Computed example of a mutant assay.
Amino acid sequence: MMDYQSIEQILQNNRRWAAQQKQKNANYFTNLARGQKPPYLYIGCSDSRMPLTQFMQVEPGEIFVHRNIANQVCLTDINFLSVLEYAIEHLQVAHIIVCGHYCCGGIKAALEGTTSGLVDSWVTPIREIYLENKEEIDNLPNRDTKLNYLAELNVKFQVKNLYHTAIVRNALRENRAPRVHGWVLDLYSGLIKDLDISTEAWHLYPSCPASQKPLVTIG
């Protein structure tokens, strides 16, 4: 079992870090307390191995964050929708990043049915992604490849879900929508993989007649 730091150690670490920051810049916390204007909204997984500030090498104040199991863009989650609205309407972020990761427990739970209760309900949309792509996924050579591919499909699906929200659609109509990116973090290497998801069809959609549907695929 991995050793972990005690609460006392964490508080000591905090005091040491705060002193180091003030030594580098006496106004560091004064400036930080004045407000935030982050350019990024990050939608990621709650997994404890996802310390995004370390992987992305960014400072406090640069990223507005929403995290949940398996980085879901849930269209009925008022918590998520509130974060999205605040990020776009008030913070006016320039970019939205949907970031999944390999070795994701939520993806495993969806594919292999290894959980129950609320978590099982939460990952149902991922299970539906699998069923829609079952033949392709089942033909992959091994378990890890299947899980990792489903993690990528899930990110693509969540990017698509962003464009189902009235918040993003309204921003698109007013030509002020952030750029949306789909990433997967490879925990084996620590590297971020940009899935290079095209969202051009969705940017055109708000000006299309209501009878037209946007051409978007997740495969």
Rank of each mutant, 00 (worst) to 15 (best):
I218Q: 01
P60R: 03
W202M: 13
T53Q: 14
V159R: 01
S198D: 15
I7E: 11
G182Y: 02
D138G: 03
K193F: 06
T115H: 09
Q158N: 06
K108L: 12
E62R: 11
Q72P: 07
T76V: 11
P209G: 07
L162R: 00
H164V: 00
P38S: 07
S211Y: 11
G106T: 09
L147I: 10
A166M: 11
L32F: 14
R169G: 01
I126L: 10
F29S: 08
S121C: 14
C104N: 01
K213Y: 03
L185W: 05
S121V: 13
S189L: 11
L84D: 06
T115Y: 04
Y149F: 10
I197P: 01
G219V: 01
R143F: 05
A201I: 00
I167W: 00
E59G: 01
E174H: 15
M2C: 03
G219Q: 12
S211W: 06
C104Y: 06
Q12A: 15
Q57N: 14
R49I: 01
R179E: 15
V184D: 04
H203V: 07
R179A: 15
V58C: 14
E59W: 00
A33P: 00
F55T: 09
S189V: 09
P178N: 07
L187A: 09
I197A: 04
H66I: 04
I137G: 01
D47V: 00
V119Y: 08
K156G: 03
L111E: 02
I192N: 03
A94L: 11
L41A: 04
R143L: 10
E136R: 13
K156S: 02
P60W: 02
I43K: 01
I43M: 05
L118Y: 13
E8Y: 12
Y130S: 01
P60I: 03
V216K: 05
I107T: 11
E8K: 14
V65Y: 04
V98W: 00
G61L: 08
A210S: 09
T217K: 08
N175F: 12
A94G: 13
T199Q: 01
A151V: 00
E59R: 03
K108M: 13
G113F: 08
L187K: 09
E136N: 05
D77F: 11
P60S: 02
M1H: 08
A94N: 15
D186Y: 12
N154L: 00
C208K: 12
R34P: 00
Q5F: 09
L41W: 03
C103A: 15
V58L: 11
V184G: 06
R173I: 10
A33Y: 05
R143P: 00
Q12T: 14
K156A: 04
I10N: 09
N25K: 13
N25E: 14
A109N: 07
L32E: 05
